[in-house]
Design a protein around this nucleic acid. Structure first.
Lengths: 134, 134
DNA sequence: GTTATTACTTGCAAAATACAAGTGACTGTG
DNA sequence: CACAGTCACTTGTATTTTGCAAGTAATAAC
């Protein structure tokens, strides 16, 4: 279940989107998931070095807003993997456009990987995992 | 002249883009400019009600990073209009994708205007104004 | 038992944001 | 001319968010 949705500044779609993911970290976590990263330590090990408290709070926020789901992959100490939902995977075009823009207009950024540019949202969804949450 | 560029968290294009425009307000200002708004009070009157000090600091930041240019439209009390540069106009696809995403996945957001979805970056650049800054 | 690892939480300082109240340069009215 | 009003800001300060370091619970390895 999802859609808790905080207060929105307006009903403009851009504004509501930014209310949710308009910060410096959320889309980087989504990016990592697009690159098949799924574990807490994967996100921590990304080159941007997200602070661990920010990571935990962003994962909570993204999950409570239906952008990602978590499901356990071991129980001894309970550990979760995090995956994009259809809603989360649908952010891929946004991220792709942002990466293209940066590559073309920000001199010191690297080119986006080919595989990333040619990816499609539906490729990012793990059907089994999403269905398991019904 | 532009490109002062603050420190980047990494060279990932997405990360560098978010270093610059990864906040709740910057893209709303760009959106307003895409809708042919150009004056300080236009931005202030948008429904999200940006605080005036934030607006002023964002305009400075966007200008110093080459996303917008300002040029005077009167001199009695000096007043400026703000326009997108080619670099700023190239953010249109990003904003369009974000708006599409929100419309499809955030229940209480309005549909993006048709004119906005069919716009192209080159339509947003005022050739005369950009050339005048040479 | 001791040490190490992972996925967090907690505490606190630093930075960003929000809100209210100025300020300077005018314009319009009487 | 005095005086209220507008516009594009700046300044001050409270509140919120972020960043960094350290701590903790659960377990594995030795």
């Amino acid at each position: 279940m999802n859609t808790p949705q905080t207060m929105h500044r307006s009903l403009c779609p851009l504004s509501t989107a930014l209310d949710l993911i308009g910060d410096k970290w959320s889309l980087l976590i989504v990016r990592d998931m697009c690159m098949n990263k799924s574990k807490y330590c994967d996100f921590q090990n990304s080159p941007e070095a997200i602070p661990t408290n920010i990571l935990a709070s962003r994962l909570r926020k993204l999950e409570s807003n239906g952008i990602i789901v978590k499901h356990p992959y071991q129980t001894k100490p309970i550990r979760h993997e995090y995956y994009l939902t259809a809603k989360g995977a649908a952010l891929l075009p946004v991220i792709q456009q942002l990466a293209i823009w940066a590559h073309q207009h920000m001199p010191d950024s690297l080119p986006p990987p080919e595989a990333f540019l040619s990816a499609k949202p539906e490729d990012l969804i793990r059907k089994r995992d999403n269905q398991s949450s019904v």
